[in-house]
Each structure stands twice: as C-alpha cells, then as structure tokens.
C-alpha cells in the first residue's frame, strides 16, 4: 500500500507568513481579527496554534488558504507556501488548485463540512473531478487506503452518508478528504473539539502517524493546550489577534515566558501531581473595545503587569533561536 506514495517527491514544504492583517467589518466598526502576524511554519513539523475563542486563530487558519469568509477581509500581508507562491496574490484559478492539492484543510466540526446529501465515496470523486484528476480509480484506492489506515471499514464508509457516521468517524473522513489529493501541508482547525477523550486520542494518534509517514507539514489549531502539547513540535500562542509567544513545545511547556502562556498551562487539570497546582486563569478574552487599547492586550488579566503595560504594547520579538515573546518582562522566568 505504501508503494504508490514512494514514487512521490517527499520534500516537506514550509510556509512564511508576513505581517498578516485580517479585519471584520461590523456595526461597531472594524475589528482587527488578525493583527500583524508574522511567523514561519517549519517544514516537516507539526505546528500548534493555541488561543481562546475569539483569539483569531480560526481566522488565521482561513487566511492561510486565502479563504476568509465575509465580512472578514485580508487587508495586508503575505502567505508564501514553498513551491506554490503567495496565497494572497496568485491567480484565483491556481489558488483553487493549490487548496486541496497542496494544502489540505480539516474544518472545525467536520460533522458540518461533509455534504449531507451525497455518499462519502461520491464526495471523493467530486473532489477529484474539481482538481482534474484523470485516474479516479486510483483516487478511490487512495481514499480506501487512508480510511483503512485510520482503522475503519473503508468499503462501508465510502457508501455511507454523513448522518450514518459517528463524530469520530466524520472527523477521520475529514482527514481523509484533506489528504486524498496528497496535500503536503495540512491545516487542522480544532480537529477534536466535539469528540470524547478516546476518540480525541485516536484522531491525534492518526494525525501523528500519517504526518510522519508522509513527511507532511501540519498546522494544528486548538484551544486546548493539552492537545497541542501532546502532538505539536512547535507551539504558537495567540491572544487577541496577535502572537504572544512561540517556541518548541518542550521549551514553551517547561519554560513559558508570557504570563498568558503560564496561565494557560497552569489551568490544565491533570491526572497526576498535586491538585492545587491547577489554577484557573482569571478574566475573559478581550472584547472589541479592549482590542483598541494602547497597552498590552493581556494587561487586565495579567498577574505580573507593570505600569507601562497599560500604556504601550510590547513588541513580539525573537529572544533566542526560534523563540519569540511579546512581553516587557521578556526573558524573566518565574
């Protein structure tokens, strides 16, 4: 079964995101959903993007494909995918081909992203036709291989409608659809949110294994620090549409520098260790008005704020190799 893939050029692709700005036009004015995000997605790695509801992480994911839904709008920046070009400026026709063929996307709540009226197998064929795939038989064969690879009865799944599948199964079908055209960059937006623990763990394990086997570049978006810490090689922390901190997963978990990251990690209830280690993160994510303050977006919730945090916003900058933080306290540890 691996033969078919061996002939392909396994060259993991990276992504460079520069000064990306996405705004939402609303009654209350323009909301900066993604505000000047720059980062490099390392080829062949799993990058986890973590943030709370409203942090802009899903908007960022859509922006990476240049597919931000209205009333959202990308106003500035570039998203360069190795071997495909800048997603924001390339021709629309080419861009549509890049989606699916080069970049696979697994939507948040995959249960809602399948077409309820047609069988899974037909959706695979439709996907193939829309990308001018000549050999549809081979495409179906790949779909079957992927489904079996994920521990499912492939024949049955391809003949099923979405309502005949459980949440965990739909999520796997979503992953299959993202990978069946052999995309080398895969974006997963909250792939496990609606699932129970065991389904979550198996979906994460499948992502991990397929990522390794196919030398993918994987972007995982989640609000769950546990999920990101388990799966990702690198972590990017997002807050209020901006980046707060980034680094290798081990570094971020063992030595978080931003008080927000520290709070997120402390807020995870664990099954070992002392119970009182877990401390709730106080306050709520910033609302529209709070995004317009001159100071640090996290200042109102920050246990370590300085007087200047209220007046000026810290710059997100490198403080070591592949280590970034936006905090005046910078490299100070606990």
């Amino acid at each position: 079964m691996a033969l078919e893939f061996e002939a392909r050029d396994f060259h993991p692709r990276g992504m460079q995101i520069r000064d990306l700005h996405v705004i939402y036009q609303t009654n209350q004015g323009e909301i900066p959903a993604v505000n000047g995000v720059s980062m490099a997605i390392a080829p062949g790695k799993i990058t986890g993007i973590i943030g709370e509801s409203g942090s802009g992480k899903s908007t960022l994911a859509m922006a990476l494909m240049n597919a931000v839904p209205k009333p959202g709008r990308i106003v500035k920046g570039s998203v360069v995918v190795d071997g495909a070009g800048d997603m924001l400026t390339i021709d629309k026709k080419i861009r549509q081909k890049v989606r699916g063929r080069d970049i696979g996307f697994v939507f948040q709540a995959s249960q809602n992203s399948l077409n309820p009226l047609i069988r899974v197998g037909k959706q695979v064929l439709d996907l193939g036709r829309s990308h001018n795939i000549k050999d549809l038989r081979a495409l179906l064969r790949r779909a079957k291989e992927l489904l079996e690879r994920m521990g499912m009865d492939a024949e049955r799944i391809l003949l099923s409608y979405q309502h005949e599948l459980s949440g965990g199964m739909r999520q796997r079908v979503g992953i299959m659809l993202a990978l069946v055209l052999e995309a080398q960059v895969v974006i997963l937006d909250e792939p496990t949110t609606a699932l129970d623990m065991i389904s979550q763990a198996s979906v994460l394990e499948i992502v991990r294994q397929i990522h390794q086997e196919r030398h993918l570049t994987t972007i995982l978006i989640s609000h769950d620090m546990g999920v990101v810490a388990d799966l990702a090689d690198n972590v990017v922390v997002m807050y209020g549409g901006e980046l707060a901190e980034a680094g290798s997963t081990e570094e971020i978990l063992a030595h978080p520098l931003h008080p927000y990251t520290q709070g997120l990690i402390r807020a995870i209830p664990r099954i070992s260790g002392p119970l009182d280690q877990a401390i709730a993160l106080s306050g709520s994510p910033p609302d529209v008005a709070a995004l317009k303050v001159p100071g640090c977006l996290f200042a109102s919730r920050c246990p370590k704020r300085l007087p200047k945090c209220e007046n000026s916003r810290p710059i997100y900058e490198a403080i070591g190799s592949d280590r970034y933080v936006a905090c005046f306290r910078g490299t100070e540890h606990d």
Binding site: A201, G226, D230, L231, A232, E250, A254, R270, I271, S272
Partner: peptide
C-alpha cells in the same frame, strides 16, 4: 486504562 491513556501528555513537563 484506555480512558486514562487518552489524557494528552504535556510534552516538556510530563
């Protein structure tokens, strides 16, 4: 045991 195994492991801390 399967339920306990399914709890994510915090790389770097655990």
């Amino acid at each position: 045991q399967a339920l306990l195994s399914a709890v994510p492991v915090l790389k770097g801390l655990e």
